[in-house]
């Protein structure tokens, strides 16, 4: 190879080298398991594993402590403003699409053709113990599938507390209201207190 040709080759390599920066390298594609990416290592091809039978996930025992029987009236958490706010938010995400922001069963998905859920305001559900609601969320009911994978036990209780608040909002005895709220209510619908209408559903 003549020296001119070699110089040319070196020059060309120097010009082309930065282009290699655009190439993907092994560091970008490491042989590790990323969530939900396929894996050739397991026979079913899944990178993310489902728990083995008869095993308990870490943290699952803490969930169990909040589980109650279906007919239980015991509420295992202290009911605080923070819990209710959490419940309002979670209800908006997971329940309002079907049950509606006010729990009347007219959520957007029901309007689009899902089976209409019953209203939380009906007497049967107002009398139902909290354990019953926990059971419905955990195991589903009729056409409603369970929400145990999407909503953890703590949030289920937050939602139940909020459902109780929704039920109360339509049936509160006048004596429970502050004189201020009562005065506004009596004054007519225009000045009805806005804070009693639950926020619109999820966006």
């Amino acid at each position: 190879m003549s020296s001119a040709l070699r110089n040319c080759a070196i020059f060309a390599a120097a010009v082309l080298l930065p282009l290699a920066g655009g190439c993907r390298q092994d560091m970008a594609d490491q042989p590790k398991n990323n969530p939900l990416t396929p894996s050739a290592f397991f026979s079913d091809g899944r990178g993310s594993r489902t728990p083995e039978e008869n095993t308990v996930e870490r943290g699952a025992l803490a969930e169990d402590e909040l589980a109650v029987p279906k007919d239980s009236t015991f509420f295992p958490l202290p009911i605080t403003q923070a819990l209710l706010e959490r419940g309002r938010e979670r209800y908006g995400i997971f329940c309002a699409p079907c049950h509606g922001a006010e729990g009347d069963g007219n959520g957007m998905i029901a309007v689009r053709g899902m089976k209409h859920p019953p209203s939380y305001q009906q007497e049967r559900l107002r009398q139902a113990p909290v354990g019953y609601f926990f059971d419905v969320i955990t195991h589903g009911f009729g056409a409603m599938y369970d929400y145990s994978a999407q909503v953890n036990a703590h949030d289920r209780w937050a939602i139940i507390a909020y459902i109780r608040a929704l039920q109360l909002s339509r049936n509160a005895p006048a004596g429970m209201l502050s004189p201020e709220t009562l005065r506004k209510l009596k004054a007519g619908p225009e000045s009805a207190p806005a804070e009693h209408t639950p926020e619109g559903g999820a966006h």
């Binding site: 908006g92 995400i93 699409p97 957007m108 998905i109 689009r112 999407q150 559903g201 999820a202 966006h203």
Partner: peptide, 11 residues
């Protein structure tokens, strides 16, 4: 259109 929250699916 249906107003489902992101967190309903992307938990």
């Amino acid at each position: 259109d249906d107003g489902i929250d992101c967190r309903y699916c992307h938990t």
